[in-house]
Amino acid sequence: MTQDAAGASKFSRRVAIAGTQHLGGAIHLLRVRFPEIAASALPGQFVEVKASEGSDPLLPRPFSVNQVDAHRQTFAFLYEALGCSTRQMAQKAAGDELLVTGPLGKPYPLEPDVCDEVVFVAGGLGIASFLFAAQTLKERGDPRPVRLLYGARSAESIVLTGEFERLGVRCEVATDDGSLGEKGLVTGLLERYLASDPRNPALYVCGPAPMLKAAAGIAEARGARCFLSLETYMGCGMGVCVGCTIKMKTGDGPDDFEYQRACVDGPVVDAARLIW
């Protein structure tokens, strides 16, 4: 992607919805045809989507790229129809338009030299970005074992595990109510996995803030590399408003930090540098 020269490496326009799918609970998948984004997005990146024509809600919202179909020039994202913006989205059908901008943000570091085992740790809708990551590793012919540790409230909110299994990802599931997999939190699965002394793993974690914080703590205690995909409240999503800042270490002193933008310096960050 072009960083220093002028020229398009992000794209923004109104595009038609190519398809929708209800996956379970309040979770929906929405697919749009956007060839430039389908061709250039990387796992961990997101798009900004505005479903409303008017000013309520006003701002677009960030959604991780969930799957890319390069052949059909489409990509999909997941949403949970819980808020104002996502409930409007749930009213939309194929052919309706959305304002979409992307691809945005830093992707997951999935290069082979990062680790020997790839471990995705997902909480709730945090699952969204990992399917694209697993697809990408498969397409690259990456030989490393890939594992998914996945927690959600209940069975109906556990989605897409079949897709992961088809890609050869080893899945372990936990639910709060025990309706699927183990009863408990995904951090329990993570503790147990790391206690088994895996060989040079890297954790890629996405989910609600308390889960990210807990996972980062577990990773630190076990000396595992850990990358967090932050779900920070964003304004513009493209580095301009400086509203979504996170506190990042620049050294070891108490004042050695700077405010970085979650949208362009993240959303994927090294857990060891993040100050909670």
């Binding site: 006003l58 400086v242 509203g243 979504c244 506190k247 700077e258």
Partner: peptide
């Protein structure tokens, strides 16, 4: 200038609040 600590923005009815602090 380092700017203000987060949270710095919040969406309101047909608008948004910001307190970036001139970072």
């Amino acid at each position: 200038r380092r700017g203000n600590p987060p949270p710095r923005i919040f969406e309101t009815a047909s608008g948004m609040l910001n307190a970036i602090g001139l970072q």
